[in-house]
Design a binder for these strands. Structure first.
Lengths: 258, 258
DNA sequence: GCGGCAATGTACGCAAGCGTACGGATGAAA
DNA sequence: TTTCATCCGTACGCTTGCGTACATTGCCGC
C-alpha cells in the first residue's frame, strides 16, 4: 500500500515573510472577472490577496471554512485521503473557479482536503460575505451554481477515468487539465506529487512520463515539466479530458474564453 | 474491452399498459416528505406518478430534461457510457433524492445517462415548475443544494473507490447503497447489470458475489439477491460506504432519518 | 567543488483483474 | 415435459500496476 507523503502546513500563512505581492488584480480569476459592476462593487473591497505555497492545505475534511478562495495563477487540488494514507484527486481548481463550494451549498464542510498543487496567488473572501451575496439570487448565485455543475462533471469523469484508463492516459489528462489553468507551458511538479494526485505509484508516473518524453511530447527534469506538443498530448489522453473541457466551455463560456 | 449491454428504451413511458398504480403518495420520496406546507401546496398538485421500469432511460447525455424525477420505491443510476461502450456508475439516486439536478444548477443537461436500476415508481414534476420554485430561494432551494452536495460527495467517493478498492469491496459498497434506498433486503439485479454499474467484468462480480455467498453474507440466484447479514457486509465494505452514508446523514438528517 | 539530499531510473516478483471461451444450471414458456 | 434463453460457474493466459529494493543523477548549500 503506497502511503501518500503530503506536505501538511496549516493556515494562516506566515505573513512575516516580507513577500512582495504582485499588483492587486482579482480579475485574474475568471469567475471574478465576469461579475457585473454591482457585484464587483460589493465584493472586491473585501477580497484579500494571499500567497498560495506549494503543499499548503486550505482546508481539512470536516473543518468549516473561514474563507473561500479564488485562485489567480495558482492551482488547488481537491483530494481525498484514505484511512491508510493513500490518496486520490477528486478535482482541480484554478483561475476558472472557486475553492469552498460547500459554503454556499449549505454543508459548510466536505470529506475532502484542498491542497495547493501549483504555487501562486489567490484572492480570498470571508465566508459570511459570500453567503450573503449568494443569498441575493443574482449573478453570483447563477455563476457559482453553473461552476458547481462543471466541477461535478469533473468529479464524475475522474471516477470514470479511474475505472477504465491507463496511468499514461490519466497522466495526459492531468497535464492538460493543469495546463489549462496556467498561463504558460511549464509545470512545477515532481512525479511523486503527481503520483499522489492520480493515486498511483511514483514509479508508474516515471514510466508514463518517460514514454511521453521519449515521444517528444513533454520534457521534464527534477520537478519542471514543459509541454512541447500539446496537440499530440491531447491525442494520447483519454476522452475524459475532452468531456470535461467541453462541459466547462458549455457551462461557462465567458469564463473559459481566452 | 467489455462492451456494456444496456437496455435502452425511451420515454414517454407506455401508458397503454393497463397498470394498476399504487396510491398517490409522494411522501414516499423523502425529499418531498420534508417540504413545508406552503411548498407542498404549490408542488404536489403537479406531481405525476410514473412507473419506472428496469432499464428505462430517463435522460441521455446532452438532452435537456422535461421533468425532474423523485423516486418513490425505485432506484436510478447515473452512469457514464464511454465511446467504446464501457460504462461506469457515477452515483445512485433513490427515495432520498431527485433525478435532474442539472435543471436547477443551470446546465440543463449532463454528459451522463440516467437509467432505472431497480423498478418501481417515481413522481415527476415539469421542469419549469421546479425552476420557478427553486428561484424562490426558500426551503426547496436550500434542500436541493444540500442534496446536491451529498450527491457530489457520492461521486467523489466513487472516484476514490474506483481507484483503490477491490471488486469485492466495491460490490459490498454498492449493495449497501442500494439497500439503503429500498424497503426490504431483496434486490432484483443480475450480476451482468451490477458489472455494468461497477464498470467491471461480469465474471468479477460472479467471483466476488460467490465469496459473499459462501461467507453467508448474501444469497442470490438468477437475479434475486438477498442480504442476510448486513453488519458483516458493512465490515467487508471499504470505508467509502461509511463516508458517503455519514455525509448524507449529516447534510440531510431529516431525510435520512428512518 | 563537494557533500548530501531530493528526484528520477530500473528491476523483479506478485496479485488483481481483463479478455475469452465454454460448460452447467435454472426457470419460464411452449 | 421438453425446450430454450438467461444467468451463473470456471478456467487460462495475459497485461497492468503494485510493493519493494536499490542505483543513479542533478541541484543546492556550504
Amino acid at each position: 500500500m503506497s502511503l501518500a507523503v503530503i506536505v501538511v502546513s496549516h493556515l494562516p500563512l506566515p505573513l512575516k515573510d516580507h513577500l512582495i505581492l504582485p499588483a492587486h488584480q482579482p480579475q485574474q480569476n475568471r469567475l471574478l472577472a465576469v461579475l457585473p459592476e454591482a457585484e464587483r462593487g460589493r465584493l472586491f473591497p473585501h477580497l484579500e490577496q494571499v500567497p498560495m505555497k506549494l503543499g499548503h492545505v486550505l482546508y481539512e475534511p470536516g473543518v468549516a471554512l473561514q474563507h473561500v478562495y479564488f485562485p489567480a495563477d495558482s492551482i488547488v487540488s481537491l483530494l481525498y485521503v484514505m484511512e491508510n494514507g493513500a490518496s486520490a484527486e477528486i478535482a482541480v481548481v484554478g483561475k476558472e473557479g472557486i475553492v469552498g463550494i460547500s459554503l454556499f451549498m449549505g454543508g459548510e464542510t466536505t470529506p475532502s482536503r484542498a491542497v495547493v498543487q501549483s504555487a501562486g496567488y489567490a484572492y480570498r473572501l470571508p465566508a459570511p460575505l459570500l453567503k450573503e451575496e449568494f443569498g441575493r439570487s443574482g449573478a453570483v448565485q447563477h455563476l457559482l451554481l453553473r461552476y458547481t455543475q462543471a466541477l461535478l462533471t469533473q468529479m464524475a469523469q475522474t471516477a470514470v477515468c479511474n475505472r477504465h484508463h491507463s496511468v499514461e492516459q490519466q497522466l495526459c489528462r492531468w497535464l492538460l487539465l493543469s495546463l489549462d489553468r496556467l498561463s504558460d507551458n511549464n509545470l512545477t511538479m515532481t512525479q511523486e506529487l503527481i503520483a499522489n494526485m492520480l493515486g498511483v505509484r511514483r514509479e508508474g508516473v516515471t514510466e508514463a512520463a518517460g514514454k511521453l518524453q521519449t515521444a517528444g511530447l513533454i520534457s521534464y527534469s527534477r520537478g519542471k515539466i514543459i509541454v512541447l506538443d500539446r496537440p499530440r498530448l491531447e491525442k494520447k489522453a483519454c476522452e475524459c479530458y475532452a468531456v470535461v473541457k467541453t462541459e466547462f466551455d458549455r457551462l461557462l463560456p465567458d469564463i473559459m474564453a481566452n
